[in-house]
Design a protein around this nucleic acid. Structure first.
Lengths: 107, 107
DNA sequence: AGTCTCTATCGATGTTTAGCAATATAGAAG
DNA sequence: CTTCTATATTGCTAAACATCGATAGAGACT
């Protein structure tokens, strides 16, 4: 299948931005980087975009847009609770993308 | 060391471009993609930039610039023979970059 | 010496990306 | 029901990137 190339490309594009890579790393080990949340579990539900915005030196619209890119690449999923939105890494998608990349570079 | 992040970032930036990813994949298995060369062995010496330019739908300056990006990221090395320039993947650098990325995403 | 080929550099251009302020929307909380 | 908070959307700007044509330099080949 030739679909591998385009999904690998999306993965690389999404992570080629330093801020997005940083955010993804943070939410992969959320308890190391974020305070406990009232209305959603850091691991089960994901990290509230508000906390990400507070931690990274960027405006809220910019963070929203970065999260949309990560979601479009399938690397994170989002869930709304009340008026908060939580982002959680999709670990199996990340693994699959890593495998595609590795296979493409036949390392 | 915090150097890992920036080298991972360079790796991702370099490969986030579809043409560069394509080229790297081609030169990783050069015998599958390029004709035999007179003045340099496809595997030992690398692929002549001329053949890459002929194969990909891009101008010669654009290809030169893409190769420079790959070289700056440490993913390829170049060698001049007569007035040809050959590019060869640096497999151990590629493997190291993959490992850094995997570790960063703790997959 | 003159010409041809290959690669690099320069300069210009169009496109994409990252970023923000302002605004809209929807829910929470008084 | 008004106000506050969280997120999304819009519209804009500045910077980065991809690309090309033109040109330069270095080597090969008459």
């Amino acid at each position: 299948m030739q679909m591998v190339r385009s999904s690998t490309h999306n993965f690389l594009k999404a992570l080629s931005n330093e801020k997005r890579l940083q955010i993804l790393e943070w939410i992969l080990t959320p308890r190391d980087h974020f305070p406990e949340q009232q209305d959603g579990d850091l691991v089960e539900d994901g990290v509230c975009i508000k906390f990400i915005t507070d931690k990274i030196a960027l405006s809220q619209p910019t963070v929203t847009s970065h999260m949309a890119v990560l979601a479009a690449a399938g690397l994170v999923t989002s869930k709304q609770i009340k008026n908060w939105v939580f982002y959680k890494p999709d670990r199996s998608a990340i693994q699959a993308a890593m495998k595609s990349l590795r296979d493409g570079l036949d390392v």
